Amino acid sequence: MLDETFKQAKNKTVGLKQTQRALEKGLVRCVYVAKDAESHVLRPIIEWCRTHDVEHQEVPTMKDLGKACGIEVGTAVAAVLKD
């Protein structure tokens, strides 16, 4: 499940495009990816995290991740931003 770091974070991104933009700007501390999201969606994000030494964690479902983000739909990717 999601750790308290994500739930307590004030600055987050929700969704693929927002998270990609934040990664490109070097603003991301940790990325959360849903295990049940399509692999072609997750692959570039996970690869970016590996090559740029950004922590990433898996979440069981898109629905769980969306709920933790405070939205009523699922999301494949979310991130906690640096302070």
Rank of each mutant, 00 (worst) to 15 (best):
M1K: 05
L2C: 03
L2H: 02
D3A: 05
E4N: 07
E4M: 12
E4A: 07
E4P: 00
K7M: 02
K7N: 08
Q8T: 09
Q8L: 04
G15A: 01
G15L: 03
K17S: 10
K17L: 14
K17F: 05
K17Y: 11
Q18T: 11
Q18Y: 13
T19V: 15
A22T: 11
L23N: 05
L23T: 11
L23E: 05
E24A: 08
E24P: 04
K25S: 01
G26F: 04
R29G: 02
Y32D: 03
A34G: 06
D36H: 06
A37K: 04
E38Q: 08
E38D: 05
S39R: 11
S39F: 11
S39V: 15
V41A: 03
V41K: 06
I46L: 09
E47I: 03
W48G: 01
W48M: 08
R50L: 12
R50Q: 10
T51F: 06
T51P: 06
H52E: 09
H52P: 03
V54C: 14
H56V: 10
Q57I: 08
Q57E: 14
Q57Y: 12
E58G: 10
V59N: 01
V59Q: 01
P60M: 09
T61P: 11
M62G: 15
K63N: 14
D64V: 11
D64P: 02
L65F: 05
L65A: 13
G66Y: 09
K67E: 12
K67Y: 13
K67H: 13
K67C: 15
A68H: 12
A68N: 15
C69G: 05
I71G: 12
E72N: 15
V73S: 14
G74M: 06
T75V: 15
A76D: 02
A76H: 02
V77A: 13
A78Y: 07
V80G: 12
V80Y: 11
L81N: 01
K82Q: 11
D83Y: 05
